[in-house]
Every structure is written in structure tokens, then in C-alpha cells.
Nucleic acid binder design. Structure first.
Length: 369
DNA sequence: TAAGCGTGGAG
DNA sequence: TCTCCAAGCTT
């Protein structure tokens, strides 16, 4: 890692902020410095790109314009607002945070990163972002952009996937950042990371700060940031039973922990829970699923295979391959079923994950009525 | 500290 | 199709 003189630091601040004043992006959450607006945008932007977030942000503000509105919203409505964004615990934690603010802080946001970190769902990055942007506190906001930008500017060799590395960057950035305009400084770094200093194909030749970019000057830009690779997703086989009860659909709500918590899907069963493998015949699969419905749901299922390709869906840690069955049950014994009989009208109000959308698509492909 | 947690885009 | 990456936090 290289060190900058105070002269270099001053020149960098001026260059960066002048560029930001001229070329900074006009984004919906930059129209004011309301902590609620900054907070919502920052949570949505975690591991998610700006282009994806914008329509979600606009709708979220229309549905939940204030901390109080968010605190009082039904969870189903919250998850519906988040449907398709992923990492769904983010929005459940936001509601917990909103309630925490009302209960413990008299509805007033704390104004320092140290205090903001105590709130549910607000980690070191988000605390720094809110504190600097909404409250002008000179603290760094170390996200993926900051890792990328500063590792290249200063040739920082620490592995950014290691938790301890954050402090190295926080210290380096603290010495460099503007104390007059900390919020603009942090946002300028993000805009820089999203434009000239991207991960794959940086355009440093035209970057406003190329003269400060040591890795670029050394021809080693793509060596930064240093990170260890993630393991590839593990394959898991499922069977989805698209089940009708008269005109209605049989839907189940997932548990409150783990993947896709509290979201709704059709009955989705791991093949390993059925004691069958992908090599077994369709008849064996149906037989096992019938048994499963009887034992778990006290429902008598009639099922047929669907002549369509399985649905595949890749998560961060798992790759699902899902066989589709079409099922019917008699509307006799729903009491023990961990789910609901849902009318076509109500179906649209249930929050469902992307993988369920794929299941509907593939089902319609097989059964176009 | 390492693992778990979604989705979309780019190459 | 596969791999990597994107404004991270929690346990």
C-alpha cells in the first residue's frame, strides 16, 4: 500500500468533488438528505445494482412514505414490495429497525455512525453512508466500490473477503476523505466505482482520477481488489407440485428462517426428503409425492407428470433443479395443511420468489389454457 | 471467522 | 451454460 502526502490528498479531494459536482448521477434518493430516504436506498442497494433498485425505491416510497408507515405495515405487504429484489431478510429487518426507532429513539434518527450501527440491519457500511450523507459526519462508507477504488488507487493488497480488512480501508479512507463534504465524497467514490473504475472493464484512461491511480500507472489495475473466490453453488433436486382445488391453487408459506423465509410457493419438496433420486421412474416419484402429501398434509393427491423441462434456479449457495408435477386434491382435509387454498384473485397479493415465477412460466408452457 | 442469504447483468 | 460481480448484514 502506498501513502499519500497531504498535498496529494487535497488535490484528490478537489479533483473528485469537482468531477462529482459536474457528473454525479441524478438518483431519486439524492433529491434530499432525509435519513429515511437515504436509509431505504442504502438497504436496497446492498448487493444490488442501481438500475434494479430505482423502480423498487419509487414504489416503496409510495407505499411506505414514513418510518411510521413502514413500522405499521403488514409483513405480506412488505415482502410484496420487496418481491424480486432478493435477500428478503433486508426488508423484514427494516421493519424491525423502524419499530426500534419508534420505541427506543422517540422516532428520531441517531446522527452518528456509532449509534446507527446499533440499529437492526444497519452494519458498518450503511451506518457510514447514512451518517455521512444525511448528517454530514466525516466517516467512511466502505462498500464494494470503495474496496475497488481505493485498492487500485493505493495498491492495497489485503483480501477484501476477510472481515478484518475493512478496518485497513476505513483507516486509509479516513485520512483521505473530505471533512467538509463527507457525504458527497462517499457518493463520488460510488459513482466512480460504477463508471470509470468498474470491476471488469475499467475505463481509467478517461477517469478524472487516473493520475492518482497507482495500480493503473503500474499496469496492474485488474489485479485489484484482491479477493478469494467463492465456492460454486451445490446442486439440489426438488419436485414442485402445482396443485389445484377446483378453481383455486394450493400454496404454502415457507418457514420464518432460512432461504426465502415467509415467501409463498407451490408445495416444493426436496427429493432427498422423498427417498427417491432423479434416476427413479416418474411413477415412483408420483407414488412418493402422494405418500408425502398424505403424511405431511393429510391430503389425498392425484398427480401426473408434466412433459416439460425441469426449472432451474441458481442462488448464491445452491442450484435447484425442479421437476414439475400437476396435482389435484379433494377439498376435504385442509386443516392440517401448512398452507392455503388461494383463489386466482388472491394469488396476486402473495409475495413469491423468482423461482416460483419460473415454475408458473413452465407450468403454463405445459398447460396453456 | 465462515457460512448463509437472491437476483440480474455482463462476458 | 458458466462464472463473476453488484451501494452487506446476521449469526
Amino acid at each position: 500500500m502506498i501513502e499519500w502526502s497531504s498535498t496529494t490528498i487535497k488535490a484528490f479531494q478537489t479533483t473528485l468533488l469537482d468531477w462529482y459536482d459536474k457528473a454525479g448521477r441524478d438518483l431519486p434518493w439524492r433529491h434530499d438528505h432525509e435519513p429515511y430516504h437515504i436509509w431505504v436506498s442504502e438497504i436496497m442497494l446492498q448487493q444490488t445494482q442501481v438500475q434494479t433498485v430505482i423502480p423498487y425505491y419509487e414504489r416503496f416510497m409510495a407505499w411506505f412514505p414514513t418510518v411510521t408507515a413502514l413500522a405499521q405495515a403488514p409483513e405480506e405487504r412488505l415482502l410484496k414490495a420487496w418481491e424480486g429484489l432478493g435477500y428478503y431478510s433486508r426488508v423484514r429487518n427494516m421493519q424491525r429497525c423502524a419499530r426500534q426507532l419508534l420505541a427506543d429513539y422517540d422516532g428520531q434518527w441517531p446522527q452518528t455512525a456509532a449509534e446507527l450501527s446499533d440499529l437492526i440491519g444497519i452494519g458498518p457500511y450503511t451506518a457510514g453512508a447514512i451518517a455521512s450523507i444525511a448528517f454530514n459526519e466525516p466517516v467512511p462508507a466502505v462498500d464494494g466500490n470503495a474496496y475497488r477504488v481505493f485498492s487500485r488507487l493505493l495498491e492495497i493488497d489485503a483480501d477484501i473477503t476477510k472481515p478484518g480488512t475493512r478496518e485497513i480501508f476505513e483507516q486509509a479512507i479516513s485520512r483521505i476523505m473530505s471533512t467538509d463534504r463527507p457525504g458527497d465524497f462517499n457518493q463520488a467514490i460510488m459513482d466512480l466505482g460504477a463508471s470509470y473504475m468498474t470491476a471488469r472493464q475499467p475505463d481509467t484512461a478517461h477517469s478524472p482520477v487516473k493520475a492518482f491511480n497507482q495500480a493503473y500507472l503500474d499496469g496492474k489495475e485488474l489485479d485489484y481488489p484482491v479477493r478469494t473466490k467463492k465456492p460454486r453453488p451445490q446442486p439440489v433436486d426438488y419436485v414442485a407440485v402445482v396443485t389445484k382445488m377446483g378453481p383455486d391453487w394450493l400454496m404454502t408459506q415457507r418457514g420464518s428462517k432460512g432461504m426465502l423465509a415467509n415467501l409463498w410457493t407451490v408445495p416444493l419438496i426436496k427429493l432427498t426428503d422423498l427417498d427417491v433420486t432423479t434416476d427413479d421412474s416418474a411413477a415412483d416419484l408420483i407414488s412418493a409425492v402422494r405418500q408425502y402429501f398424505k403424511q405431511e398434509y393429510q391430503l389425498i393427491l392425484t398427480a401426473t407428470t408434466l412433459a416439460v423441462r425441469p426449472v432451474t434456479h441458481t442462488f448464491t449457495h445452491q442450484k435447484w433443479t425442479i421437476q414439475l408435477l400437476q396435482g389435484q386434491v379433494e377439498p376435504a382435509e385442509l386443516a392440517f395443511f401448512a398452507g392455503e387454498r388461494v383463489s386466482p384473485t388472491d394469488l396476486a397479493t402473495l409475495p413469491m420468489p423468482k423461482v416460483q415465477a419460473k415454475i408458473w412460466d413452465r407450468y403454463r408452457q405445459a398447460d396453456p389454457e
